[in-house]
């Protein structure tokens, strides 16, 4: 029961953080990672929101990497 509770809490925290990250990512991060997404419509941004929420640690690293790369250049 304790393990199951921990799993559910971890899932909830991961999903909540993912959702918050995804909103920020599709609003202003996606075009930094991929310039082809700069003029993309909101339908596209809405469509990649679930994937952004699910894979947020990976995207956060890449977004951070692209910001550092952009700053150094």
């Amino acid at each position: 029961m304790v393990v199951a509770e921990a799993v559910v809490i971890l899932l909830a925290v991961y999903a909540l953080l993912g959702l918050l990250f995804a909103v920020a990512f599709v609003t202003c991060g996606v075009q930094r990672l991929d310039p082809a997404a700069r003029p993309a419509p909101w339908g596209f941004r809405l469509l990649i929101l679930p994937g952004s929420a699910a894979l947020w640690p990976l995207l956060l690293l890449r977004w951070w990497g692209s910001t550092k790369g952009g700053a150094s250049s």
């Binding site: 990649i48 894979l55 890449r62």
Partner: peptide, 16 residues
Amino acid sequence: LFLMAATSHDFWNRNL
């Protein structure tokens, strides 16, 4: 199936 559907857009193919 969720992960696959959520990453089915070409954006993911290019950026992952």
